[in-house]
Amino acid sequence: MSDVLSGDGVVERLRAAGCVFAEEEAELLRAAAGGPAALDRMVERRSAGLPLEHVVGWAEFAGLRVEVDPGVFVPRRRTEFLIGHAVERARPGAVCVDLCCGSGAAGAVLLDRVEGAEVHASDIEPAAVRCARRNVESRGGRVHEGDLFAPLPPELRGRVEVLVANVPYVPTGDIGLLPPEARDHEPLVTLDGGPDGLDVLRRVAAEAPEWLAPGGGLLVETSERQAERAAEAVAGHGLEPRILRCEELYATVLLATRPG
């Protein structure tokens, strides 16, 4: 264990396991460990392929430290592009919903950045709900367990100004191509979007108009190759689509607005 406690020992083990940013990860692991034995266990778990965020228990997202439990979807940096547009659209006191919330990262940012926001989040995964409650309810929001809109308070219908839905959008046939960190350690329900990756988006688009306020916007992350079909899906339910892109984060977001 002695070489594990040195900077070189941790870095070498992480490099041997294929960690590209071994030096940076070593610093995070040493900071998170409560002692030599804990550090050794954390290095072992990371070397075995567990996502770094699951090992240390948190992820940095849009400037916030968001708690992330094992078995919960890890918020991606590219999703900061989506939440940035969501924050821009939300006026003070806006009613906001975070569907498929995972850790609750998007909801936490809305509460942190939008003065007086009323934020509700939902997820079908019990582990995600437990995690999101720590990130969202500690900031004044509410988290509900259930499938998409089903668990939301009915009085929100027609009042939601910002609807964030970070739905799964990986086509079923492409799941095996994902990095092992995602494929082996994140719930399949958070990744698999059906045969063409748009199954969950279509379900959200079908119900979104009755929940959105006039002029309210649905923001969904998608892929470049799916963007046009995603836009067609929301347009079929009376929403006005616009595709937003960020080359730096390799992010594509569909903004669908309910006509005012």
Rank of each mutant, 00 (worst) to 15 (best):
V4T: 12
S6Q: 05
D8E: 14
V11E: 02
E12F: 02
A17I: 04
G18C: 11
G18T: 10
V20E: 14
V20P: 06
F21V: 13
E25A: 06
E25C: 11
E25F: 01
A26I: 07
L29N: 04
A31P: 05
G34S: 11
A38W: 06
L39Y: 03
V43W: 03
E44K: 13
A48E: 14
A48L: 10
L50C: 11
L50R: 13
P51W: 07
H54L: 01
V56P: 03
V56Q: 04
G57S: 09
A62I: 10
V66K: 00
V66W: 00
D69C: 11
P70I: 03
P70E: 02
V72E: 06
R76F: 06
R76C: 08
F81L: 10
I83K: 01
I83P: 02
I83L: 12
A86N: 08
V87W: 07
E88M: 10
A90D: 08
R91M: 11
C101P: 07
G102I: 00
S103R: 00
A105N: 04
A106S: 11
V109R: 06
L110F: 11
L110A: 04
D112W: 12
R113C: 05
V114H: 02
E115A: 15
A117W: 01
A117H: 09
E118M: 13
V119G: 01
V119M: 04
A121K: 02
A121M: 06
S122A: 15
S122N: 06
I124W: 09
E125S: 13
P126L: 07
A127M: 09
V129T: 03
R134K: 13
E137C: 02
R142P: 05
H144M: 12
H144Y: 15
E145S: 08
F149Y: 12
P151A: 10
L152R: 07
P153S: 05
P154L: 14
P154C: 10
N166Q: 11
P168S: 07
Y169T: 07
V170I: 15
P171W: 05
T172H: 11
T172V: 14
T172I: 13
G176P: 11
E181K: 08
A182L: 13
D184R: 15
H185W: 14
H185I: 00
H185N: 10
P187L: 01
P187E: 06
V189M: 13
D192Y: 04
G193K: 07
G193M: 08
G194F: 07
D196W: 06
G197K: 04
L198F: 09
V200C: 03
V204W: 03
A206T: 08
A206W: 05
E207A: 14
P209G: 12
P209F: 10
E210A: 13
E210I: 13
W211C: 08
W211H: 01
A213Q: 06
G216C: 03
G216F: 00
L218Q: 00
L218S: 04
L218D: 04
L219W: 12
L219D: 00
L219F: 15
T222I: 15
S223F: 14
R225Y: 15
Q226F: 13
A227C: 09
E228H: 14
E228N: 09
A230H: 03
A230P: 00
V234G: 05
H237D: 09
G238I: 00
L239Q: 00
L239D: 00
I243E: 02
L244P: 01
L244A: 08
R245K: 14
C246I: 09
E247N: 13
L249D: 05
A256Q: 02
T257D: 12
R258P: 03
